[in-house]
């Protein structure tokens, strides 16, 4: 399928869904509206709300805050994940001692931590960042750990025969291998950073996309909830596009098929 055709079909899906939504919420079928607008709003109201947000500029502050929280969560979580991933992979004894606790912490649904973080860090951005960090950390941690562990024996032996010392092995072999695993999980970890930020905002905050949605929901403003969802989706797609660009640059040494396998 050519690129233009594909885009056309993708746009058609959106048009069909919006059209169906419009018909079901505004046109009576055998004397009854199938989707009551009170619960489902309608495309015009939602569109009007989105345009309003952008025309008045009210949305920018919320977008900026959610973006900032996501970035902080991603950076801090990644740094921690890389450090601990490296440390555990190079020190099997440390890894063995902490193994059950790492599994335990990773199994915990992170949402339950949100109230604690709010208590500890207040209603500002840091409680949201903390929630995002707990999500990002484990993804990066496991990938870096795997990346260091799975360096090919032949490549390692070759590096040693070429005269590399421990520090050079770290720089030329373990580090690039670990980073490649981390980058291949970039979509997931960036996605989780956003999830952490939005969920945190939803559960208690004074700004951000999650706050907008929660506020609208609180006054039964369904159009506001849907509008918030659409802005959030567009926001995530935009970030995902940026990640794809970054990934192409960083993993250009990898065969195409491998990049998406990990």
């Amino acid at each position: 399928m050519s690129r233009g055709r594909l885009l056309l079909y993708q746009a058609l899906v959106a048009v069909a869904i919006v059209a169906l939504w419009h018909v079901l919420t505004t046109v009576p079928v055998s004397g009854r509206i199938l989707l009551p607008p009170f619960f489902f709003s309608n495309p015009f109201d939602v569109g009007k709300q989105i345009v309003d947000w952008f025309v008045t500029g009210a949305i920018w502050r919320h977008l900026a805050i959610t973006l900032w929280e996501s970035i902080l969560a991603f950076v801090i979580g990644s740094l921690g994940g890389v450090l601990f991933g490296f440390w555990f992979a190079r020190q099997p004894r440390v890894a063995a001692v902490f193994d059950p606790y790492v599994k335990m912490a990773n199994a915990l649904p992170r949402v339950v931590l949100a109230p604690i973080f709010t208590l500890w860090l207040g209603l500002g951005i840091w409680s949201k960042v903390a929630l995002g960090v707990t999500l990002v950390f484990f993804i990066v941690f496991f990938n870096v750990y795997q990346g260091v562990k799975e360096v090919s024996g032949a490549v390692l032996a070759n590096a040693r025969m070429l005269g590399m010392n421990e520090r050079q092995l770290m720089r030329h072999v373990y580090w690039p291998s670990a980073l490649s695993w981390m980058f291949s999980s970039l979509h997931t970890s960036v996605g989780f950073a956003v999830v952490g930020a939005v969920v945190g905002e939803y559960l208690g905050s004074a700004a951000g996309l999650g706050y907008l949605i929660q506020q609208a929901e609180g006054v039964f403003d369904v159009a506001g909830v849907f509008a918030g969802m659409f802005v959030l989706s567009a926001f995530v797609i935009l970030i995902d596009l940026l990640v794809t660009v970054a990934e192409r640059r960083l993993l250009k040494w990898r065969p195409e098929a491998e990049r998406h396998a990990a």
């Binding site: 090919s152 032949a154 490549v155 032996a157 070759n158 590096a159 025969m161 005269g163 030329h172 072999v173 690039p176 291998s177 490649s180 040494w253 990898r254």
Partner: peptide
């Protein structure tokens, strides 16, 4: 340290040109 070793398996660094 006097030896160079050419391995049977692929042992080039995949992340280097």
């Amino acid at each position: 340290r006097d030896a160079g070793y050419l391995f049977q398996a692929d042992s080039l660094f995949p992340w280097k040109t």
